[in-house]
Write a protein that binds this DNA or RNA. Structure first.
Length: 572
RNA sequence: GGGCUCGUAGCUCAGCUGGAUAGAGUGUUUGACUACGAAUCAAAAGGUCGUGGGUUCGAAUCCCGCCGGGCUCACCA
């Protein structure tokens, strides 16, 4: 829409100022076009302040002159305070948007700008032996959403769950299991038992610091491939993944690779050799580092005094491996902002190693989660497990369904979709950099701007469409778009017309909340429209046009929800 | 102390590549179910956009200083 208007404005400028070089190209004009704060001021507006400098005339006069010379059957123009305000010809605009929706349906807003290029996304990345809690939700859902968004835009995506499955804590866990645990309880209780053993170890180690040494010994055994150590380690991993998989299934999240830290354990020789060859490694206090002082960063530690590798070493090896395996166009790390410096260092080291792809690596950072104002702490039990949250949200949804839709079929199934929708929506509602203070009352609120609100709107639209199917003769008439020229329909259409732009922006900024907000605005506009305008009435042609708008809204909402990772029930 | 980041209504946040009267939701007060779903809609009230300068025709938005919160800064990940 903007593109067409920009061309119209460009030719109007030319006409008004006799082909003088306006110094504004069509795409510059397009970038300047904005949406007025109020719809009384038109659908789009072109500010003339920039031109005022070029032509050395007041913006008011320019706007007036442009308004006089503007002619198009698609829109009319009005000058207002230095702005050229454009009012779209309502019926034509409606037809235009609706035609596209009819054509694309739930694919509306999709494109092939990705052109099959690959994007790797590193998200969720859970730690072995820890239960999935609310602190893991953001990385999981942001990653899941970005994956969907990029696929919708024609990219190939690779979802990577970079498991935290390496480190001395696993040695400690083996010691704890052998000392205080047994196989039956472990198999019965799974990760909960691992958590108990982990806490127990730390309690005991405070009294007897020699336990730390025992932990290190057992980790060494894992490193050396000792049979007993390995079989326990693999069992811990299996139990954790089984537990996480249950959550992933509920959330509808999946991955293409589970290569974790341990996978790279024997793949670090090469990057270390390369670092040496390129003279990047420096000895400092016995450790091997890459000096980044020139770049105003602390050094990046590659090898410890004892020669052992570190987190950064593994990330560098993993990045190189991922690029070789997938030849990615971009590699996104959806990781909390605490690790900002770490990623800056890793990306810089890769750049210094002459890996061109380093500039295509992005740390998609997000805020911290606290619980009732305090830091999450497994050991203190100050924590909310995701399954508990999801269960309570689904119970709450079921209560409301029992109250409001007692005759609904598959109540449990729909309660799940709604409860999970509420949790997912809340997670992706705000800019990802914002910290989240988890509060039960907020999490279980289903009124106002929430997941259930959007789902409800979708279900409501579905309900109208079901009603419409019963109308005889509706499909024999031609739709009359003059039924969509009122303010409420137009506002809804305007928002729908801007939805594809929101998807592009969400991808560009790695910001799913842009879609959450766009779909909420559309849902709001539909609910207003629904109250103010009768959809089904005696005039079949007009009814048909309104029904088509209803279908269009439904499709867009469903698409938006799928990009966020929410289900869209047709009844609730 | 250095770096990064955030500061907008009682609360949670949009708006930030400069533009028109700073917007939502929630909470509070009030109104609307005898035709399409009240998990909805409508109305009222609520603001020194942390603060002080600067740039500009124009600043919540850009630049600098300051204040306040968070994160981070060598052998954890």
């Amino acid at each position: 829409m903007k593109e067409i208007l920009a061309e119209l404005i460009a030719s109007t400028i030319e006409k008004s100022y006799n082909n003088q070089d306006s110094s504004l190209k069509t795409d510059e004009i397009e970038a300047l076009i904005e949406v007025p704060p109020n719809s009384d001021m038109g659908d789009y507006a072109f500010p003339c302040f920039r031109l005022s400098k070029v032509f050395r005339t007041s913006p008011n006069i320019i706007a007036q002159k442009l308004a006089e010379n503007f002619s198009s059957d698609l829109a009319r123009a009005e000058a207002m305070g230095g702005y050229l305000n454009l009012f779209l010809e309502r019926e034509k605009f409606a037809k235009r948007i609706i035609d596209e929706l009819k054509n694309k349906g739930e694919r509306y807003g999709s494109s092939n700008i990705g052109n099959g290029k690959t994007i790797c996304l590193d998200y969720s990345s859970i730690n072995i032996a820890k239960r999935f809690h609310i602190g893991h939700l953001s990385t999981t859902m942001i990653g899941n959403s970005l994956k969907a968004i990029f696929e919708f835009l024609g990219y190939k995506t690779v979802g990577i769950n970079y498991l935290g499955d390496w480190g001395t804590q696993f040695g400690k866990l083996i010691y704890a299991f052998k000392t205080w645990g047994n196989m039956d309880t472990l198999k019965e209780k799974g990760v909960d038992e691992l958590t108990r053993l982990y806490i127990k170890f730390h309690e005991e180690a405070e009294k007897d610091p020699s336990l730390e040494e025992e932990g290190r010994k057992w980790f060494k055994a894992i490193e050396d491939g000792n049979d007993e150590a390995m079989s326990l380690f693999n069992l811990f991993k299996e139990l954790t993944l089984k537990d996480a998989q249950r959550v992933y299934d509920i959330l509808g999240v999946s991955f293409d690779s589970y290569h974790g830290e341990s996978y790279y354990n024997d793949k670090m020789d090469r990057p270390i050799r390369e670092l040496k060859e390129k003279n990047l490694l420096k000895n400092s206090e016995g450790a091997s580092i890459v000096d980044l002082e020139k770049y105003d960063m602390p050094p990046c530690l590659i090898l410890k005094k004892d020669g052992a590798t570190l987190y950064a070493t593994r990330d560098i090896a993993a990045a190189i491996d991922r690029h070789e395996t997938y030849n990615f166009d971009k590699c996104l790390y959806i990781v909390a902002y605490q690790q900002d410096l770490h990623f800056k260092q890793v990306f810089k080291v890769l750049e210094l190693m002459d890996y061109d792809f380093a500039k295509n690596m992005v740390h998609v950072a997000f805020g911290m989660v606290s619980y009732e104002g305090q830091q999450l702490a497994t050991r203190k039990g100050h924590i909310v497990y995701l399954e508990d949250l999801l269960n309570r949200a689904c119970e709450k949804a079921l209560e409301i369904i029992n109250e409001k839709s007692p005759n609904l079929e598959n109540k449990e199934e729909i309660a799940m979709q709604v409860g999970i929708g509420a949790v997912v929506y809340t997670d992706l509602q705000n800019g990802r950099i914002k910290d989240i203070d988890f509060r039960w009352d907020r999490a279980l609120n289903f009124d106002g701007e929430t997941g259930p609100y959007v789902q409800y709107t979708h279900a409501r639209a579905c309900s109208v469409l079901r009603k419409a199917e019963e109308i005889t003769g509706l499909y024999d008439v031609e739709e009359d778009y003059s039924a969509l020229t009122d303010d409420f329909s137009q506002n809804l259409l305007r928002l729908i017309s801007r939805f594809p732009e929101s998807i592009l922006q969400a991808a560009d900024k790695y910001e799913p909340s842009i879609i959450t907000r766009a779909m909420t605005d559309i849902a709001k506009a539909f609910n207003k429209y629904y109250y103010e305008q009768r959809i089904i009435d005696e005039d079949l042609s007009k009814t048909k046009a309104r029904i088509i708008l209803c279908k269009a809204t439904k499709d867009v909402l469903k698409t938006a929800m799928s990009l966020i990772g929410m289900q869209a029930p047709e009844r609730m």
